[in-house]
């Protein structure tokens, strides 16, 4: 790990304190085939774009469900995001190049970095 990466990791680490503890979500149900409309994590279809698919089906599977901390809408630096993806962090698994290639990861990091904050959830 070089110095810049280490600093980015530290900066993001302090930002990503696990705060989520919601117990309810308001997401559409997944379909079961047989002609039902398929929805997944708020999307009405399975993403065709590789980066969008990684974002929706991998990142958001934890970071939009209360399992991992919220990462959208926080201006997180792309370099730090990539560091977390490649190295993992405590409970977060690491992802190899074979799983998410470098080009796709660049785009995913940009998407997360420039994403809007999630809509506030109604009080439970």
């Amino acid at each position: 790990m070089n110095g810049i990466q280490a600093r980015a990791l530290i900066a993001l680490g302090s930002a990503l304190v696990l705060t989520a503890c919601g117990t309810k979500t308001d997401q559409p149900k997944t379909g079961a085939g047989g002609g039902q409309k398929v929805t997944y994590l708020g999307k009405e279809s399975i993403p065709k774009d590789k980066a969008e698919m990684v974002f929706q089906q991998t990142c958001m599977a934890c970071h939009a469900t209360g399992v991992g901390p919220v990462i959208t809408g926080r201006d997180l630096p792309p370099e730090a995001i990539k560091m977390f993806v490649r190295n993992g962090n405590r409970a977060m698994p690491a992802f190899t190049e074979a799983m998410i290639d470098n080009e796709t990861l660049d785009r995913v990091a940009q998407m997360v970095s420039t994403s809007k904050a999630p809509a506030p959830q109604p009080a439970q």
Binding site: T23, K24, V67, R90, A91, M92
Partner: peptide, 30 residues
């Protein structure tokens, strides 16, 4: 639509969910 019922129902029909990764934050530290 509450958890953990929701993710259990998903697992019992083979749907995709990572909700059980919540176990790893119970004490934290990975």
């Amino acid at each position: 639509n509450t958890e953990p019922f929701k993710y259990r129902a998903q697992l019992m029909r083979g749907d995709m969910t990572l909700q059980e990764f919540g176990l790893y934050r119970w004490r934290g530290g990975g």
